[in-house]
Amino acid sequence: MSNNTNNILVLNGPNLNLLGTRKPEIYGSLTLSDIHDTLTEAAQEYGVTLDFKQSNSESEMVDWIQAARGKADGIIINPAAYSHTSVAIRDALEAVEIPVAEVHLSNIHAREEFRHNSYVSAVAKMVICGAGDAGYEYALDFLVSQIGSE
């Protein structure tokens, strides 16, 4: 990037706007807004700016990923259900050539069999699942270390 500030795009997929009320026994009681606030504080400590987004639309997520090319230094993505279905999101992440950290609040491998496969994992530099909201902070820490070593 030409500026001195590293930029991380944080993408959240379908139904994550319902965090805090949807199956809190699986996804926790924090809202997406709570996660945004915590991650923003951590990003400030690193001197990183975040572009935090959520969509229930696959096409919108693909557009945001493509728009990040040349603008973002890393992408944290919780593709939610699109992990298991979206070749389009996987291909967009691969095409932009930006380091990707994939995050899942729950352990997708301990859940229903259809959740065990993620198309995104094949193009991610790291995958975190089952760490709850802390997974976002782990992903941020990882990406900051990757950006710093480039």
Rank of each mutant, 00 (worst) to 15 (best):
V127N: 10
A81V: 08
I75S: 04
D91T: 05
E112A: 09
N78Q: 11
S149G: 05
E94N: 15
L105A: 00
E94S: 14
T5G: 04
S106W: 07
L16V: 03
G130A: 09
A124C: 08
A72T: 02
V96R: 01
A139W: 01
N7S: 14
I89P: 03
A134C: 02
I77N: 03
S33V: 14
L32S: 07
H109Q: 14
A81K: 03
M1F: 09
L50R: 01
A42D: 15
I77Y: 08
D34N: 14
S121F: 07
L11W: 02
P14K: 01
F142S: 00
N6M: 14
V100E: 02
V87S: 08
T40C: 11
Q146T: 14
A88M: 08
I77S: 05
S106Q: 07
A67F: 09
V123I: 07
G135V: 01
V87M: 12
F114S: 09
E60Y: 07
K71F: 10
D63I: 06
V103M: 01
L9R: 01
A67T: 10
T49M: 12
L39E: 01
I76M: 06
S149Q: 13
Y82L: 15
I65Y: 04
A95L: 11
H36M: 12
A92M: 06
R90S: 07
E45S: 15
H116N: 12
E60R: 12
I8M: 03
Y46N: 08
A101Q: 00
P24R: 08
A110F: 05
A67G: 10
A43H: 06
V48W: 04
G13I: 03
V123A: 01
V62H: 06
